[in-house]
Design a binder for these strands. Sequence first.
DNA 1: TTGCTCCTCACGTCACGTGAGGTGGC
DNA 2: TTGCTCCTCACGTCACGTGAGGTGGC
Lengths: 286, 286
Amino acid sequence: VFKIGDFSRLGQVSVRMLRHYDQLGLLKPGHTDPWTGYRYYTIEQLARLNRIVAMNGLGLTLQQVGDLLARDDQLSVARLRGMLTLRRAEIEQELVEKQLQLAAVEARLRQIEQEGKPSPYEVVIKTVEPVTVASLRATAATIGEVGFFCERLYGSLYESLARVGITPQEPEITLYHTQEYRETDLDMETAVVIPADARPLRGEPDFTINRLPSIDTAATLVYQGPFHTLQFPILALLNWVADCGRIPDGPLRELHLSGRAHVDGVEQEAPVIELQLPVRMAEEAA
Amino acid sequence: VFKIGDFSRLGQVSVRMLRHYDQLGLLKPGHTDPWTGYRYYTIEQLARLNRIVAMNGLGLTLQQVGDLLARDDQLSVARLRGMLTLRRAEIEQELVEKQLQLAAVEARLRQIEQEGKPSPYEVVIKTVEPVTVASLRATAATIGEVGFFCERLYGSLYESLARVGITPQEPEITLYHTQEYRETDLDMETAVVIPADARPLRGEPDFTINRLPSIDTAATLVYQGPFHTLQFPILALLNWVADCGRIPDGPLRELHLSGRAHVDGVEQEAPVIELQLPVRMAEEAA
DNA sequence: TTGCTCCTCACGTCACGTGAGGTGGC
DNA sequence: TTGCTCCTCACGTCACGTGAGGTGGC
């Protein structure tokens, strides 16, 4: 018969935990002195202690271990199998997450090695809700004219909205339907959020009303600075996506979070812009 | 300027957490109304919020993120690199642990599939401290005579100990130096723990005094039952070890935890026995 | 006035470690 | 008497979720 300290050394479990197992009813000492409260364990209890330690080592909670050991010392095969199968799925999930996290940390370290300084941008994975927008879509002839092109599109869009009596909300969203890098024939869409139930009050709209779909996994980046340096955060986003083993899975969205890009024909100096790029995991090369 | 609810939706961070970041000083609202306590955030703060979320997503603690963001908004390259390198090592460690855990869960599931019921034994990995023992080592001619053989060895051992005036302690430890399965010429050692400073008081001992080395990683199993069914727990232990991608790395030890195996020539009926097998990870097949 | 949002305070999670303050047995 | 062990009670960990109970603005 062992005092708690001896039993602790024997089973390599801290005294604190033996008391905890006692309290949870997982492992009651063979005898407890009612006067002193001293716990006395028998050598036969070592097997049960080891069972607890082993199950817990598989990542089952003490609650689960308790359930499993509840009826005398017999394990219910069905329940045990169920719990282990569940646990296996959990661990596999955890492994995937850890691996993604490792990839992200390594991507960041590489980035620091290469550039000598940390990226000024932060990429965050999030989900994006669907929104209803009024939009105009057209093709810009060259990359140089994209700025003016969008300015004109937004201009006509607001004009048309006013004409048919729909109140635009925020933000503006520019979509880049051309996904690869190209210098000509860029398929652009300028959109502005409108109420989900908006209908033209008068006249025929010369824009389309549609619903931008939700994005389950969007790599997003918030940038503050002038439009003419937008290529830097866009490149950072694309690099990050590639570095983490993901690939783009839809048009890039550019949200103007600090209000309209142009007011009275004047471009905002340092607008806050959120880039949203739908992504999915790249297939592993087989 | 955003109220906390809007900013929460914008950054995909719960209101609770925005308040928490405020409290920790990680992200103070651009303005807090001193009368109502309302927090007001500016769109420019979204970048900082995303930085916090991104760093936290890498598994850094909020404390670490706070340290990194402490001086204005600038990241210290050296510290950032240090933290990420540390974090990478941590994640790699966690991955190894998860993979071992997964292997253990899968081994258990396979075991249930094959036998139709869970193993009555629990294998636990632990460390074993070195102990000083008096021992006799000899070779048993056949597997059938191991029982008698050990009984005689322990008998002479206790006799010799008494003769030279050393008090034996507990437990008895039988070591199996023959590691592969064989039916003849089994190299056995019977040992009993003695005080670390024990010296013969008189006469010449015909046993050896040595120190059993510590075991960093021992697969151990506690068994209660007669000696003649000891092969079952031994097989279970060996199978478990193989299933988890480990291999034996030293002689198997058999500890008699419930006192001497034989008292007055009579074998204990259901002794409690702990098996300890030193193991190491198997090299992956290249 | 009714919802809606915001506020603070505080408990619960989970498997532990680490005290404080006190007692029993050699 | 002095160490050593044991006892109970309770706080801290960490990033949150989830109330209770109350207030401000349209």
